[in-house]
Design a protein around this nucleic acid. Structure first.
Length: 411
RNA sequence: GGACUGGUAGUUCAGCUGGUUAGAAUGCCGCCCUGUCACGGCGGAGGUCGCGAGUUCGAGUCUCGUCCAGUCCG
């Protein structure tokens, strides 16, 4: 390829280039390291929205941002080059659970880490596998030590502990790795939510401890983000947020939401947790969400998002546009020869008509999910960029209120 | 001209010895998908069972006629 997506993994160079030498966050000093930096660049006056810049060994990311989900190391239906050049994603997410089972974290370690394996040279965040075990594994048993689960691929039995989750993510080499947590379902009894949350907190302690004693297999600096749990119970959420805040991590995540609870409840929990988590560190709302969810959550102080909606729903024929939501499989688009997104930046926005994309879907052509995925991710990137612009311009709240109504419309 | 086989949803077919609102697959139409799913999940519409007559309490199912398609024989 004319342009290399593989970054030379020269830690010393990167450290000196950034000029910051600090201890790692667990306080141990196995070697001098560069720690993740988050700089807030502007704040909205009417909401908790802010813009910032997150610096990693694989470059900087402007926040608030959205991370496309590349479960198995790639965003389905997209070339890495397309994700990089066309969609313009700043950072991608991948899954520890999936990569651990296939091809195996050892294989990826041999390749030189996930960046070298898939050719993505920008930052990567890996989910720890807690959520996937919760939602995917056929059989699973949570114990104090960790989780015993059966693979959804071949039924093989595995044990995942907090230490193991850190080790695997060290091997994968993501820039941001997640603590091993238990995601509780909705609804969830308060008693179970409390027990689960406390265990997640104990697991976090073990994750941090192990993280402090280990290093990335590939010479990059990694940051470990802890995760707030507590289901939909304000007292639990408060307690969890305080515990997570006290770990003084370079970034903090909110988990256990968008699992079926009403959106209002999700916002209330997010708002409460954001008021407790440190304001000078990035806040990551895991698994969210729809364009409207994202804008509302930015207003509450969230900086980072990931969700399968633009990709998975795209593959199933749902398009997100600046005017609202389209089910491109509907008959009414059959002879609509207008472009997918007039005024869109991507070649697929103006290069393909609704009628053509509908035809591709109805005919079962592979190009259909490819176009829809690229379009939807392009739209999400546009939405985030626009949100950052509006925050900087001091007009975020008004813009957000207008957009939320528009973006939820069914066309 | 004769014999045989078959004619059941848009399509390909299933319906045992006649018995409740005729099924499946696929297609069509719509909905869903929030740290898992590239061909996924759910729902809906759609048939006077070629046509006509008969037997029977009751026929997609039996009988006769007729039309159509296919195969074979002359």
């Amino acid at each position: 390829m004319g342009q290399s997506y593989l970054l030379s993994p020269n830690k010393i160079y990167l450290c000196q280039k950034n000029g910051i030498f600090v201890k790692n966050q667990a306080g141990h000093e196995p070697g001098i390291r560069f720690i993740m930096e988050f700089t807030i660049t502007s704040k909205d006056s009417k909401s908790s929205a802010r813009t910032g810049i997150l610096t990693t060994d694989h470059g900087q990311v402007e926040s608030p941002f959205f991370m496309p989900v590349g479960t198995c190391g790639a965003v389905k239906a997209l070339h890495i080059k397309e994700l990089h050049d066309d969609v313009g994603a700043q950072i991608m997410l991948s899954n520890t659970y999936h990569l651990f089972l296939r091809p195996g974290s050892g294989t990826i370690a041999k390749a030189g880490g996930l960046h070298r394996f898939n050719g993505w040279d920008r930052p990567i965040l890996t989910d720890s596998g807690g959520y996937q075990i919760y939602s995917l594994a056929d059989i699973r048993k949570f114990t104090e030590n960790g989780v015993v689960f059966q693979s959804h691929i071949d039924g093989s039995k595995h044990t995942f502990t907090p230490e193991h989750a850190v080790d695997v993510q060290r091997q994968l080499g993501a820039d941001i790795i997640m603590a091993f947590d238990e995601c509780t379902p909705y609804p969830c009894e308060e008693d179970y939510a409390r027990k689960s949350m406390k265990r997640t907190h104990r697991w976090l302690k073990r994750c941090l401890e192990h993280f402090g004693h280990t290093e990335c297999s590939h010479g990059y600096t990694q940051a470990l983000f802890p995760i707030v749990q507590g289901s939909v119970y304000p007292d639990l959420r408060k307690e969890s947020a305080e515990t997570i805040a006290s770990s003084d991590a370079p970034g903090n995540a909110i988990g256990g939401l968008s699992v079926g609870e009403p959106a209002k409840m999700m916002y209330e929990m997010t708002d409460l947790v954001c008021s407790i988590l440190p304001a000078d560190k990035p806040r990551y709302l895991m698994g969210v969400g729809t364009p409207a969810n994202i804008l509302e959550s930015i207003a509450l102080g969230i900086d980072m998002f990931d969700c399968v909606i633009p990709t998975r729903n795209g593959r199933n024929g749902m398009l997100f546009t600046r005017d609202g939501i389209i089910n491109i499989k509907n008959e009414k688009w059959n002879e609509d020869f207008a472009p997918l997104e007039p005024g869109g930046d991507l070649f697929c926005d103006t290069g393909y008509s609704k009628a053509f994309l509908r035809h591709m879907f109805i005919a079962g052509e592979m190009l259909a999910p490819m176009i829809a995925t690229m379009h939807n991710l392009g739209f999400y990137m546009w939405l985030m960029k626009e949100a950052r612009k509006q925050i900087i311009a001091g007009n975020f709240s008004a813009w957000k209120n207008k957009m939320v109504v528009k973006l939820m419309q069914r066309l």
